[in-house]
């Protein structure tokens, strides 16, 4: 392993450690029983099969959003539209679940396809605006999130809301749309297999095809891409469509894998989490799995902590922000990097 690579790993590790330490400090400061709070946050998710199941269940949508965001970030697109896509594709999947009744495997496939298709269209639009007119994909994608949330909430409330339950929930979906549970004692569903398969396919695409190569090169250096005759517009559009398909798939899989009705009364936040996962994973597909598991673990830890103690689970968002700040700091720990480079040079002499 070269110095550069090792350095990246050390840096990621240090960034995560700093944020966890800040988390501990917050707990020590704010909690009446800091030790048991720490226990719930860090240890308890691994104490029960059910909790570990929760971690994997939560990692499934995070893998999709992390993968989608890595593709976008890798192309140099700061597009956070996965959030709105997750929400709306989830809603579309639930509508397919409510309105249709198909023989077993075709029903979930249709729901996921429709979710993906929606994601592709949305991201293609944002990518098109960027490629053609250089319109800020960050601001437009964030505005799109709010717009799709508004439209989705309207559709849910006026057309699919079940008046017989309290809360704004949709009607029950037909059982044929649900993804099967695959591990007894947990709610882990076939979405896990779809997620892992998607990771593998994205890996093949990025590292074994010409388009994938162009996506990676564009992200590294836009001018290099242009000089070597790549069509940046095409690359942006391909990356956007792919990311949209994956985000849309994620929203659909989450709804038909974990819910019996559509229950999101706000944007679920899963799409935004993709940003942290992409950064932790350095945009590498297989790392996305581990980054998603890590985030899912501390999320479940925070949920358990919030349930058992006086510290709210939102603490995790503070830690997430700190990790992003440090990991993306190009000069963070640079002194250390230079030292290890020097050492390497000396060793080679």
């Amino acid at each position: 392993m070269n110095v550069e690579k090792r350095f990246e790993i050390v840096r990621t590790f240090v960034a995560v450690t700093i944020s966890l330490l800040i988390g501990f400090a917050i707990i020590l400061f704010a909690s009446d029983e800091p030790l048991s709070t720490l226990y719930y946050f860090i240890i308890s998710p691994s104490t029960k099969m059910r909790y570990l199941g929760n971690v994997v269940e939560l990692a499934i949508p995070l893998i999709f959003s992390g993968l989608a965001t890595s593709i976008l970030f890798q192309t140099g697109l700061f597009n956070l539209g996965s959030e709105g896509v997750f929400y709306f594709s989830g809603l579309l999947a639930s509508i397919i679940g409510i309105k249709f009744s198909l023989s077993f495997i075709f029903h979930p496939i249709l729901a996921i396809l429709i979710g993906s298709l929606f994601g592709m269209i949305v991201m293609l639009l944002i990518g098109f605006f960027k490629a053609k007119w250089n319109a800020s994909e960050l601001v437009i994608s964030l505005m799109f999130n709010s717009i799709f949330f508004g439209i989705g909430a309207y559709i849910l409330n006026f057309y699919f809301r079940d008046p017989n339950v309290s809360g704004v929930y949709s009607f029950k979906m037909n059982e044929s749309v649900f993804l099967n549970k695959i591990i007894p004692g947990t709610r882990i569903h076939t979405g896990l297999i779809i997620a892992l398969l998607t990771v593998f396919l994205v890996y093949l695409f990025l590292y074994r095809t010409r388009w994938g190569y162009e996506i990676r090169m564009t992200g590294l250096n836009k001018r290099f891409g242009k000089y070597t005759g790549m069509n940046t517009t095409k690359v942006i559009l391909i990356a956007s469509i792919l990311a949209g398909a994956i985000a849309g798939m994620g929203g659909a899989v989450e709804i038909i894998g974990m819910y019996d009705r559509f229950k999101w009364s706000a944007l679920p936040g899963l799409g935004f989490d993709g940003a942290l996962i992409a950064m932790l994973a350095k945009n590498k597909p297989k790392n996305v799995i581990f980054a998603a598991l890590f985030l899912a673990y501390i999320r479940i830890g925070a949920d358990l902590m919030a349930r058992m103690t006086d510290i709210p689970s939102e603490m995790v968002y503070i830690l997430q922000a700190i990790i992003i700040l440090f990991i993306s700091g190009k000069k963070f720990l640079e002194g250390y990097k230079e030292k290890s480079l020097l050492k390497e040079v000396k060793n080679n002499e």
Binding site: I26, F78, L80, L138, F272, A275, L276, M279, P312, E314, M315, V316, Y317, I318, Q320, A321, I322, I324, L325, F326, S328, G329, K330, K331, F332
Partner: peptide, 24 residues
């Protein structure tokens, strides 16, 4: 400026921090 965090990622991080931190 100092640690050369990407301007956009830094901004995104501050927004995440604000979302969670204010609720906390």
């Amino acid at each position: 400026l100092k640690l050369k965090t990407d301007v956009i990622l830094g901004g995104i991080a501050i927004n995440f921090f604000a979302d969670g931190g204010t609720i906390f």
